[in-house]
Write a protein that binds this DNA or RNA. Structure first.
Lengths: 207, 207
DNA sequence: TTGACAATAATTGTTAACAATCGTGAACTG
DNA sequence: CAGTTCACGATTGTTAACAATTATTGTCAA
């Protein structure tokens, strides 16, 4: 999710055990769940590897988001609810703070989380889960096909979407979100994919 | 999915082991995956129970389907593709055959599968997975809140939807599907839920 | 130098025993 | 007789050793 592990990175059980200080059972349970969400790939007798989505899968993810998110935001703008507005406003503040401090991984994390919070605001548990999966995969894809550093959500589009929701403008909110998704997608270079490297040390280093 | 296990049925590991003739590890892996899909509930130190969705979760599932399926079918009707039409036509034939033979569990299974095949026809792997989960949960819900036996998809609505797709009529297809979902939902009695019983013997009997 | 082959090392998959937790029922007390 | 407590049985969670598979390295021959 924070793009600290490159796609195709091998995740050895023993390594993960000592990294997180837990038994093999916990690790295997976690790997199974991650693979069921398509975040890693579990190859029989060969181990776990960070998923490496191809062009087709990337398009699937964006198509699914285009299908779900616009009507979601439209609906939210029609009837936001005070609690949701407070939560989202607070989130935007966090994003701004992280952007000011130039904390890269935090910015990436929060950028994704904004979209999951939109889904959470719908109050629909299923849609919330779906969106969480979609956002995670989007992070993977941006990490793979992201051409430059502006890969994370551009500028303050999140803030503008929230403003549209606050002013009960479903049309505008929907339109802004569509543009936002398009910006993310058009910032990708679908042909030249990033070189898959093996650096699990990234996690070890900061732990 | 076939409604042979009532909600809240306890799924003991030992029982499942001897039923399927596999080790405890396999069972636990399967239970973990099922719980991640919301089909069963894993209570810590207490075991696995068939999920028992409440009114709110049931509404979530239908709301999610209402969000996703209509635009999906509309899109499919605009550009079906010969392979998809063949697959769907073949599926309708299977449904008819099962209905003629009055094979209840088969009818239930195929009724759900029709919707997942609609999603499969979109060619989007994500949407396919989502729909499969939604359909499974719908089966659970119909089993819980279904008032009479006509709970399974009424008459030949599936066939009509397919016809609309075949004749490239997106509006009609979308409208028929919306009606179809409404029929399913309105056939439920959201208040008086079925009595949760414990009959894992159902599986043992037919195995 | 390159290719195939074999042996070894490393890693994953499985099994079985052990520990911990929870529900139940009997015994006891007020 | 009601309520509480304790102990037992059953079930789940964990650990560790073992088996099976795969990857790697070294050797030999062309």
């Amino acid at each position: 999710m924070e793009q600290r592990l490159a796609p195709n990175t091998k995740l050895s059980e023993a390594r993960l055990c000592e990294t997180f200080g837990v038994g093999r059972m916990r690790i295997r349970r976690a790997l199974l769940l991650l693979s069921s969400q398509g975040i890693i790939e579990l190859q029989s007798n060969r181990g776990a590897y960070v998923a490496c989505p191809d062009k087709s899968e990337a398009n699937d993810v964006f198509a699914a988001r285009m299908l779900i998110e616009p009507p979601l935001v439209r609906q939210l703008a029609q009837n936001p609810g005070d609690v949701n507005l407070a939560l989202l406003t607070n989130h935007i503040a966090l994003e701004d703070a992280a952007r000011k401090k130039k904390e890269r991984t935090e910015i990436i994390r929060l950028s994704g989380e904004f979209h999951t919070k939109l889904a959470q605001a719908s109050g629909n548990k299923f849609i919330f889960r779906m969106m969480r999966e979609l956002v995670t995969r989007t992070s993977l894809i941006v990490g793979l096909f992201g051409s430059s550093e502006n890969a994370s959500c551009p500028d303050d589009e999140h803030g503008n979407i929230l403003k549209a929701i606050q002013s009960h403008d479903p049309e505008l909110a929907e339109q802004l979100l569509i543009s936002h998704l398009n910006h993310i997608q058009s910032g990708l270079d679908m042909e030249a994919r990033q070189q898959p490297q093996d650096d699990l040390a990234a996690i070890l280093g900061s732990d």
